[in-house]
Simulated assay, not measured.
Amino acid sequence: MSIQITPAASDRMRAFLAKAPDAAGVRFAVKRMGCSGFGYVVDLAGAVGPDDQVLDIDGIRVVVDPKSLLLVDGTVIDFQRQGLNASFVFHNPNATGECGCGESFTVS
C-alpha cells in the first residue's frame, strides 16, 4: 500500500489536525459520486475501524477503509491554491478517466 503526500498537502492536513486534537488522523476514502463514478474524500477520522488500514505518512496518520484501499493505492495527494480557490488534488495511477471538473474519476 502506497500513498504519498506532498509538502503542501502535509501542511494543510497538519493545520486541520492541530484544530482537532482528538481526531484519530486523516481519513482518505472514495465514495460513489459525480459524473464519472467515484469521488475522493479527505476528512478528519473520528475513529479507526477494525478493518481500516492506518498509514504513517510524514508523521500524519492516514486512515483508509478496505473498500477504498484498492482504488487509492499509489495516489499522490497534493494541495493547490489558485486565486481564491484552494483544494486537494489527487494523482491516482488507478484512475482510467476523470470528469472535466476533476471532481470524480473512473477505474477499469
Rank of each mutant, 00 (worst) to 15 (best):
S104Y: 03
G97W: 08
R14T: 12
T75A: 08
P50C: 15
P21M: 07
Y40C: 02
V64I: 07
A95R: 02
A18S: 13
F38Q: 01
Y40N: 02
F105W: 05
R81K: 07
D78E: 10
G59R: 04
F16P: 00
P66A: 11
L55M: 14
A23P: 00
K31Y: 15
C35K: 11
I57P: 01
Q4T: 09
V48F: 04
F79I: 07
K67E: 13
R61H: 13
D78W: 04
T75V: 10
R12E: 06
F28D: 00
L70Y: 12
F90S: 00
G59S: 07
C99K: 05
C101P: 05
L55T: 05
T6Q: 02
D22E: 15
D51M: 13
T96S: 12
I3D: 02
S108E: 09
P50S: 10
S36H: 12
A45K: 00
M33K: 12
T96D: 04
C99Y: 09
V41M: 14
A47W: 10
R61W: 07
F88A: 05
D11F: 15
A15R: 14
H91N: 13
Q82D: 15
E103Q: 12
Q53K: 13
C101A: 14
L84G: 10
G25H: 02
A15E: 15
S36T: 14
D73H: 06
T75W: 01
A20W: 10
S68Q: 02
C101W: 13
D11A: 14
T106L: 10
G49V: 09
S68V: 04
V42S: 05
S104P: 01
D65Q: 08
S10D: 14
A15Y: 08
V42H: 04
M13A: 05
A47H: 14
K31Q: 13
G97F: 12
G59C: 09
D22R: 10
P66V: 14
G59A: 06
P7S: 06
A24F: 03
D52E: 09
V62I: 15
L55S: 08
S2Q: 11
R81M: 10
G34R: 02
G83D: 05
A47I: 15
G74E: 11
T6N: 03
P21N: 10
V107C: 03
T6C: 05
T96Y: 06
I57R: 01
G39E: 02
G46I: 07
A9T: 01
Y40T: 03
P7G: 11
C99W: 07
N92C: 07
T96K: 07
D65T: 05
V41A: 12
V107Y: 00
R81D: 09
A95S: 07
